[in-house]
Design a protein around this nucleic acid. Sequence first.
DNA 1: CGGTATCCCGTGTGATACTG
DNA 2: CAGTATCACACGGGATACCG
Lengths: 152, 152
Amino acid sequence: MTEINPEEMNRDLCPVMKTVSVIGDKWVMRVLRESFLGCKKFDDFQENLGVSKSVLSRKLQRMIETDLLYRKSYKIPGERRRDEYRLTGKGWDLIKVVLAMMEWGNEHLIESGDRTLKVVERGSELPVRLSLLNETGKATDWYSLNLKVDQK
Amino acid sequence: MTEINPEEMNRDLCPVMKTVSVIGDKWVMRVLRESFLGCKKFDDFQENLGVSKSVLSRKLQRMIETDLLYRKSYKIPGERRRDEYRLTGKGWDLIKVVLAMMEWGNEHLIESGDRTLKVVERGSELPVRLSLLNETGKATDWYSLNLKVDQK
DNA sequence: CGGTATCCCGTGTGATACTG
DNA sequence: CAGTATCACACGGGATACCG
């Protein structure tokens, strides 16, 4: 990746900076990881994450405000009404970030021989990896990238 | 992605959790983003990030300890010796996380019509996107994923 | 210029108590 | 069980002074 001029490097323009401002704290990605694994209930989040209830409460609220999660009330007949916390589409789309972190963690933080989690394709059970494709579907080298200022 | 049993969900086993513990704070990804854009000098990091010198100093030290950056001393003839902070291979490998964040930010945090940063293939200038490939090089659907406990 | 050490302060965090 | 409110505290953060 090459340098671009300082005005274009402006962090207020950069989607990476904006994303970090939403997910770049101690808890958001951990909560999301639980959500991706199917966690929905307050107490399950609390137990799995080992976080205090007050912090979790505020964090879930914040993640609802930023539209990563939504609260859905449900009722099992004979039991009382409960709420669960589910991924929004916007939250679900962070799957790529989670998978990129998983790949990096497996590559650099897991010792050889240690047990770890990997992602496989359902059905074939083949392992999958993140790759860069251009519009023609052709794979691109990680070192052949340029930045470009564009409009959405 | 489906649920797996609680023992396997253990956050101590999970590469995502381990990764978050390394990069999941306010500054690491911001510093890395500057590095990917070619930033190397202490003062440039400080100016671009708008962070205090003391915080930046401690953060760079920590990122050197975790092997994301290394310090390289260099000397321009006639000037005094200086240090610069460069990405290690381990740090560079976080490019996928950065790109995933960039894609997500462009998708969900940038208004239509706004200027933003995109990644293109050098040469063709074609935009590139992250995609999931299995071992045969075939693209996989984001919704057809399973988790598997494995050894590295 | 290129940092580090010290101090002070605000926010994030956990423990506890409390409510429906 | 499913949270929220309150409080005390540690830690991250900026300002400043200082050093090479």
